[in-house]
């Protein structure tokens, strides 16, 4: 489970891209594609390899004026799924 001090990193070979055919954002990895919604894209857009998970959720809470604990819970599950599937790493 990703912790507040963990720093999520998008690994080499994985990138976020707008898919014009499907008219939505996707996360591309070698031979694998995941479709994102706007909230998922917003979470991944905060990942810069320097910000911790806690910093990311604090920024999202400010942007969306939503409870930080709810954002942390949703984001933890979202990023955890990507980590399990090797679309994301933590350092």
């Amino acid at each position: 489970m990703i912790g507040a001090d963990d720093i999520p990193v998008i690994p080499r070979g994985v990138r976020m891209q707008f898919d014009r055919v499907r008219d939505r954002w996707v996360l591309l990895a070698p031979e694998r594609t995941v479709a994102l919604d706007e909230i998922g894209r917003a979470i991944l857009s905060e990942i810069d390899g320097a910000r911790s998970f806690g910093q990311i959720t604090a920024r999202l809470a400010a942007t969306y004026a939503a409870p930080e604990d709810q954002i942390a819970e949703d984001s933890r599950g979202f990023l955890g799924t990507l980590i399990d599937r090797r679309f994301l790493e933590v350092k």
Binding site: V34, A35, I39, A66
Partner: peptide
């Protein structure tokens, strides 16, 4: 507004729900 994010894996033209309100 903030909503629970969703992840759907696209495989062989099919979409598989990985995470989100309907993922169980």
């Amino acid at each position: 507004a903030w909503t629970k994010p969703t992840l759907r894996e696209i495989e062989c033209g099919m979409e598989i729900n990985m995470y989100g309100p309907d993922s169980g």
